[in-house]
């Protein structure tokens, strides 16, 4: 469904990704593992079209999306739930969710999607009229995920969904992600909680200093010595 071939990308003159190649097949849950600053977020932002790669090629469902802007990528069905929630904090939760289905393919079915998403997130339903900025961190993350779902994406990307959240909330977030995974969604996830993510994922990539150094089935990675030493602190 998604392939990255020899991607180089970065901010301004700074190159962060060096020759990154990866792929995601429909229905698969794939995770990217790496230290802070290794380039995981950059990878997701590059796929989403927020960063244009300096070289390499990205295709989605056979279409070359390397040069597309973020809003065009969204139209094709790629949705990124960004690091740090990034809600529209002075808009209500409902308005945030409605913005989620701005994508043309999702706009017509907006209300059905809303009902469906709210059934997954009963807590969000209680907060619809509140300003998103007034919610707690955990609730905000739920809204961010719900907003991502509103786009009816073909590929859903999570960037550090548990960042800055209390462990108990992290647990809830993972439960929600597990639920989404069970619906058969195609997911690409970046998460500092490597252990949990690898358990939920089918496959994983290990990114170090902007380069993919290792890729394998999630289970194999969990028992890999290097992964255990570097990312599980063992």
């Amino acid at each position: 469904m998604l392939t990255l071939e020899n991607i180089h990308a970065g901010y301004g003159a700074t190159t962060i990704l060096q020759d990154v190649s990866l792929h995601v097949t429909a229905g698969e849950v794939v995770t990217i593992v790496g230290a802070n600053g290794a380039g995981k977020t950059t990878t997701l932002r590059t796929i989403a079209g927020l960063i244009r790669p300096s070289s390499g090629k990205i295709t989605f469902e056979g279409e070359d999306i390397t040069k597309l802007s973020a809003h065009e990528t969204v139209e094709l069905g790629v949705t990124l739930i960004p690091e740090g929630r990034q809600l529209f904090s002075d808009m209500t939760v409902l308005e945030n969710l409605l913005m989620g289905s701005y994508r043309k393919a999702a706009r017509a079915a907006q209300h059905d999607t809303l009902d469906y998403v709210l059934s997954l997130f009963p807590r969000v339903k209680e907060r619809l009229a509140q300003n998103a900025g007034s919610l707690s961190g955990g609730e905000q993350q739920m809204v961010a995920i719900a907003r991502g779902m509103m786009a009816k994406p073909k590929l859903l990307m999570f960037d550090e969904p548990s960042l800055g959240l209390a462990p108990i909330i992290v647990q809830q977030v993972f439960e929600v992600i597990d639920t989404i995974v069970k619906t058969g969604a195609t997911v690409l996830i970046v998460e500092q909680n490597v252990f949990h993510t690898l358990k939920a994922a089918d496959r994983g990539y290990v990114l170090e200093n902007g380069e993919i150094v290792l890729t394998d089935d999630a289970e194999a990675l969990l028992s890999n010595d290097h992964v255990r030493q570097a990312y599980l602190g063992i």
């Binding site: 802007s69 809003h71 969204v74 990124l80 529209f88 808009m91 913005m99 989620g100 994508r103 786009a151």
Partner: peptide, 24 residues
């Protein structure tokens, strides 16, 4: 209006607005 909301969304969070599919 949808456009009005999109304008406010862009003002509040440009990057997130792009991720919603808004042509900033």
């Amino acid at each position: 209006t949808q456009t009005g909301r999109a304008i406010r969304a862009v003002a509040q969070n440009r990057a997130a607005a792009q991720l919603m599919g808004i042509n900033v």
